Amino acid sequence: MYAERLVELAVALGFDGWLLNMEVSLDVGEIPNLIEFISHLTKRMHSSVPGSLVI
């Protein structure tokens, strides 16, 4: 749901992508969820905004 809203914002406001700054401590069990979220966000951005970046 959050990735979808970020893509909608990027399209509506003309963003070229997102810079994700992760300055938090994560438990090892949370890392797969983070990887899945970033992967999903990247795929959706690329399909909605060609040439976009998720860094």
Rank of each mutant, 00 (worst) to 15 (best):
I35G: 04
H40W: 00
K43G: 10
H46P: 07
E23S: 13
V54Y: 00
V28P: 14
S48W: 04
S48Y: 03
P32C: 01
F37S: 02
A3L: 04
L9R: 12
N33Y: 03
P50Q: 09
F15H: 09
W18C: 07
R5W: 01
V11A: 10
L6R: 05
V24Y: 06
L34R: 01
A10W: 05
V28S: 15
I55S: 12
A12Q: 14
A10T: 08
R44A: 13
R44C: 08
V49R: 03
V24H: 02
I38M: 00
V11S: 11
V54W: 06
E30G: 06
I31F: 06
H40G: 12
R5M: 04
E36L: 11
V28A: 12
A10G: 12
G14V: 14
V49Y: 09
A3K: 02
S48N: 08
N33T: 10
A12R: 14
V28D: 15
G14K: 15
A10I: 07
L19W: 11
S25C: 01
H46F: 13
I55Q: 09
N21H: 11
N21F: 12
S47Y: 01
H46S: 11
G29T: 14
V11Y: 13
I31T: 11
G17S: 08
M45F: 01
F37R: 00
N21S: 12
V28H: 14
L19C: 13
E23I: 11
D27I: 13
W18H: 12
I55H: 12
Y2D: 10
M1D: 01
I55W: 13
L34P: 07
W18A: 06
G14P: 15
G17F: 04
V54F: 07
L20Y: 04
L6Q: 08
I31H: 08
D27T: 15
I35K: 05
V54Q: 06
L34W: 08
F15A: 15
A10D: 09
D27A: 15
D27M: 15
A12F: 09
E36F: 04
E30I: 06
S25E: 01
E30P: 02
I31Q: 11
A10P: 08
K43L: 13
L34G: 06
G17Y: 06
A12V: 08
I55F: 14
S25I: 01
E8D: 11
N33C: 11
E30H: 07
Y2N: 11
M45T: 03
G29S: 14
